Simulated assay, not measured.
Amino acid sequence: MRRDITKGSYLQARYKRLTARRGPMKALIAVEHSIITAIWHMLTDNVPYHELGGDYFTRRDPERAARRAVTRLNELGYRVTLDPMEATG
Rank of each mutant, 00 (worst) to 15 (best):
R17Y: 05
R14D: 02
T44E: 07
L52D: 08
I29Y: 06
K16V: 10
L28F: 09
H50A: 13
P48D: 06
V80F: 05
D55F: 04
R3F: 10
R3Q: 09
S9D: 07
N46G: 03
R17A: 10
Y78H: 11
L52P: 06
T44G: 00
I29T: 04
M85C: 14
T71S: 13
Y78R: 02
Y49W: 07
K16A: 09
D4M: 04
H33F: 05
K26Y: 02
L18Y: 10
I5V: 04
G53W: 05
E51P: 15
R3Y: 09
G89A: 10
D4P: 09
L28W: 03
E32R: 14
A65K: 05
S9I: 00
E51I: 02
V47C: 07
Y56D: 04
E32G: 09
R17Q: 08
K7Y: 15
R60Y: 13
L28K: 08
L73V: 01
T6C: 09
I35T: 05
R72C: 05
I29F: 11
G54I: 00
I29V: 09
Y10I: 00
D45E: 12
G54V: 00
H33I: 01
L52V: 01
A30F: 00
A38M: 14
A13C: 03
P84Y: 03
M1I: 10
H41Q: 15
P62Y: 02
L28M: 06
Y49S: 01
Q12V: 01
G77T: 07
H41F: 10
T37A: 15
L18M: 11
R14K: 15
I29D: 11
K26M: 12
V70N: 04
P48H: 00
G89D: 08
S34F: 02
S9A: 07
R3D: 08
T19R: 12
R64L: 15
R68E: 15
G8P: 02
Q12T: 03
T81C: 02
A87K: 09
D83W: 08
T44C: 01
Y56K: 08
T6H: 10
P24D: 08
A65F: 15
M25Y: 13
A20S: 10
K26C: 03
Y49R: 01
R22P: 02
R3G: 13
T19C: 13
G23R: 05
